[in-house]
Amino acid sequence: MAPGLWRLAAIWLGLGLQSFGGGTATMALIRRCAVDEQRWLSEAEFARDWAISQVAPGINLLCLTVLLGWRVRGLRGACVALLGLAAPSGLITIVLTLMYASIRDSALVHAALAGVIPATIGLGLLMTWQMARPPVGASRAQGGAALALALLVLAGSAVLVGIFRVPVLAVLLGGGGVLGLAEWWRAWRGRRR
């Protein structure tokens, strides 16, 4: 039986407050709660919701939260789940930043940052690779030409943003447009054969 709105809010609030450890830890907590404990949906349905969350606008985990809330209690469930997860985490983030801001100008913090900033860049590099790997892999499965086009979009976007200062939105829509047209043409050519 689906929980009421207050119960739903309490569940997501609990998830939001205990999800220390980054996105992966949060995702694991949500999956365990939704699939194993509450049985709101099956493993396959969870995987589908996660896939959709990855192409939807905004933070993936918040998209997933909205979809799960929707499944349980419709639009009100989606809003309650979203606020339950994000509001406490967001407020704790602000408090952590406030604490950090009070010491950010000390010499010790400067020295620590000389280590933290490169580490953050390293995390960012890995994240970039993880973001690019699935679409590059899908293009590679289609053959050499598709792979070359995918790599061109990847490298071209970096050059357009980094060197020519093209607005990021234009680059995103342009990248989507190029591969969208290429896929449409590939499908059209396949039908004519």
């Binding site: 970039t128 973001m131 970096a158 342009g174 990248g175 989507g176 591969l179 896929e183």
Partner: peptide, 15 residues
């Protein structure tokens, strides 16, 4: 294709 292109451009813009 559109979704895949946006994902690639998003990763590229990160560099």
């Amino acid at each position: 294709g559109f979704v895949r292109g946006m994902m690639l451009a998003g990763a590229g813009a990160f560099i």
